[in-house]
């Protein structure tokens, strides 16, 4: 038996919003520790890794490991049926071929359940080693979203260059070029609004704008985003979801040939 209850369905709605442009289907792996999802996008240049810890749920029970292959389009349709203040419970029997979503309004006057067929997905899982990155940049997630949106008007790629002076985001295209420089926040009063740069070695890497824009669909999950970079390895864009877990996006850098 698997049962996971969240007081706010909005978290699950936002998680789905954050992955549905990249993935059409995904496997939710549930065990004692919580719910995990790892999947590559169709073109296999980006990877999404989601963790929702068991202790972040209002109620969590998982007697046996459960693997639920879900069509994210169908899941989106179902979650649209939940009010933002509704609680949501996901339930599945052991070895079941369906999952049930139960939505309850705050006053318990409306209870709805939606059963969805599960899919047998044969998806590749990649082993991502614990990595020490040369640069990590923390910044307000809304600022990162704004920059990606602004720069993607000019070019298809964004060059991210991190040095001890700060971090520079650049692009160029038919109409011209654009550069945005961010310096580390001088005095941190509000952590959510700070830009914090940790750099062991300077790094410059190029990434596809389109994917960075997909990642920023997670903005509403967290006030801050963390970018981790090392030479010649994928960028990690991490949104920490308060009290429950994180969503991480990995993106392979572009390479000049």
């Amino acid at each position: 038996m698997f049962e996971a209850r969240l007081l706010k369905s909005s978290i699950l709605k936002k998680v789905l919003e954050a992955i549905k442009d990249l993935l059409t289907q995904a496997t939710f792996d549930c065990d004692d520790n919580g719910i995990q999802l790892q999947a590559m996008d169709n073109s296999h240049v980006a990877l999404v890794s989601l963790l929702l810890r068991a202790d972040g749920f209002d109620k969590y029970r998982c007697d046996r490991n459960v693997t639920m292959g879900m069509n994210l389009g169908s899941m989106t349709k179902i979650l649209k049926c939940a009010g933002d203040k509704d609680t949501v419970t996901m339930k599945a029997q052991d070895n079941a071929d369906t999952v049930t979503f139960v939505f309850e309004s705050p006053n318990q006057e409306k209870v709805s359940d939606y059963e969805m067929k599960l899919m047998n997905l044969d998806l590749e899982h990649l082993g991502i080693p614990e990595t020490e990155y040369s640069c990590t940049i923390r910044m307000p997630s809304a600022e990162f979203a704004r920059m990606c949106r602004d720069l993607s008007q000019f070019g298809e790629s964004i060059v991210i260059s991190c040095t001890k002076e700060g971090v520079k985001f650049s692009t160029s295209g038919d109409i011209g070029s654009a550069n945005i420089k961010l310096a580390q926040t001088a005095s941190i009063d509000k952590e959510d609004e700070a830009v914090i740069i940790e750099m062991d070695e300077p790094v410059t890497l190029t990434f596809a704008c389109q994917y960075l824009n997909y990642f920023t669909k997670a903005t509403s999950l967290s006030p801050q985003v963390q970018l981790s970079m090392s030479a010649d390895v994928p960028l990690v864009v991490e949104y920490r979801i308060p009290d429950i877990g994180h969503i991480r996006y990995y993106l392979a850098p572009k390479i000049e040939e």
Partner: peptide
Amino acid sequence: VERQDLMKEFYPEL
């Protein structure tokens, strides 16, 4: 010409 590597070129398949 820019090329984009695949995830699998960086991380091993489990």
